[in-house]
C-alpha cells in the first residue's frame, strides 16, 4: 500500500489541463492543397496510397475523408502546392465539406 501511495505522490496529476497542448511538430496533420503552376501532379497522385488525391479533367481534387495524412504526396511534390500542417481539428457536418479542388494550371 505504501508503494502505491509513494507512486501517487511521485507521479502527481497526469490529466491534461485546459487548454490542451498543441500537436507536436512532427505530427502529420491536415494536408493543404493550393494551386501552383508546374507542379508534378501525376507523380503526386501516383504516390497517394488511398486515392484521396485525384485528377478530374483539369481539376485536382483532394478528399479528406480518404486521406490518411501519410505525407507521401508532400515528399514528392516539387513546389509548395501540397503542404503538411499540424492541424488536427478536421470534423465537419456535411460530407461535401471534405472535398477541396483546385485548377491544374491556375496560379494563386
Amino acid at each position: 500500500m505504501f508503494d502505491m501511495l509513494r507512486k501517487i505522490w511521485q507521479v502527481g496529476t497526469v490529466t491534461e489541463k485546459q487548454p490542451f497542448e498543441p500537436a507536436p511538430k512532427k505530427y502529420r496533420g491536415k494536408i493543404e492543397l493550393t494551386a501552383q503552376k508546374n507542379t508534378n501532379w501525376e507523380e503526386c497522385i501516383a504516390a497517394c496510397p488511398t486515392g484521396a488525391l485525384c485528377m478530374n479533367v483539369n481539376k485536382i481534387r483532394l478528399f479528406y475523408g480518404n486521406c490518411i495524412q501519410c505525407g507521401n504526396c508532400v515528399k514528392i511534390c516539387n513546389t509548395d502546392a501540397l503542404t503538411q500542417t499540424t492541424d488536427c481539428y478536421q470534423a465537419v457536418n456535411a460530407k461535401k465539406d471534405l472535398f477541396i479542388s483546385v485548377d491544374k494550371d491556375e496560379e494563386k
Partner: peptide, 10 residues
C-alpha cells in the same frame, strides 16, 4: 451527423 477524418484522429 459528423464526419471526423484522420488516420486515426486525435
Amino acid at each position: 451527423y459528423v464526419y471526423v477524418p484522420g488516420c486515426p484522429p486525435r
